[in-house]
Amino acid sequence: MIPNSSAARQSNRWVLPIAMALVPLSLAAAVFMGIVDVPANDVISALGGAGSEEARSIILDIRLPRIITGMLAGIQFALAGLLLQTITRNPLADPSLIGVSQGATLTVTLFLLFTVYIFTPGSHTVAELPIGWLPVAGTAGGMIAGGIIYLLAFRLELSPLRITLCGIAVGAVFHAIAIGLIAGWGSARIEIILEWLSGSLYARTWDHAVFLLPFTVAGLVMLPVIHRPLVMLQFDAAVARSFGLSYRRQFSLVLFISCVMAASAVGTVGPIIFVGLVVPHLARFLAGRHFPLVVALTVVLGAIIVTLGDLIGRLIGGAEEVPIGVVTAIIGVPVLLALLRKVP
């Protein structure tokens, strides 16, 4: 009945299986490779709970938690990026566009600034700073920023353009305040905030992975629910509503999901900006017109790219590892430019 379609589907039939096969491969690569040279045999026995104390510590307490945290964060960034790009109909949308990153930055900054004096007066050492609470502070900040933007846009009229403009405005204000606070500030905290700002998986523990997991699961569970509305939200409001979509409700739901995903991910690993921006484009490039495939690929590629990006950062940096945020930005820019040239 429909010519070409079978041929078109044929060509991208293998994309998802291949991408999914790459997940365990990249996971394995990230576990086996690292700055400390742990022999493959020791890695395997460490994974089984045996082996030397040192190998187990490196594999189970350092590498695995940071890799898992990274994968979860990667999935969330990529998905949040895809949702935002879809509903704002802006190919350059990502969690920083709607102010979530900036909101998280501001609360993390404020948190570090005040808690130091409240909990351990006079402290200037990193060890005594309550960094365990950073993910919670960041998540809350991102959600607050998302909420403010939503209310501003809702009062005017919930449209893609309004959300974008409000997001940029609120984001700029938060960013300016955060930078202002950082500028007038002691050195120990600056190190933490800078590391966080560059987007890093350094010293991420199982606590971080456990914190993120419910958010990732919730986001993935919601995907089938928002799938059809998501296709509709690419139309003008009048068209989508004529097709029977409760535009306002579905737009708000998708925006809420992307805010939660972005805020919790930014809170945990810092703004790894380019993942949210580039991965959806890469998925669209590989999957073409088939939207369900684009969504699935976005999830899988989000996990892979953060894992591999972090591995590269660990390997090339040596003892002073390069943060994942820097790696994805440096690799991401040329990739994005290439993709934008090819996309019609």
């Binding site: 690419q234 139309f235 003008d236 009048a238 068209v239 004529s242 669209r284 017109r289 996309v343 019609p344």
Partner: peptide, 13 residues
């Protein structure tokens, strides 16, 4: 069913 003037949709659809 309502069809507005000059509706827009993603190009790759």
């Amino acid at each position: 069913a309502f069809l507005p003037q000059q509706p827009s949709a993603p190009d790759e659809m």
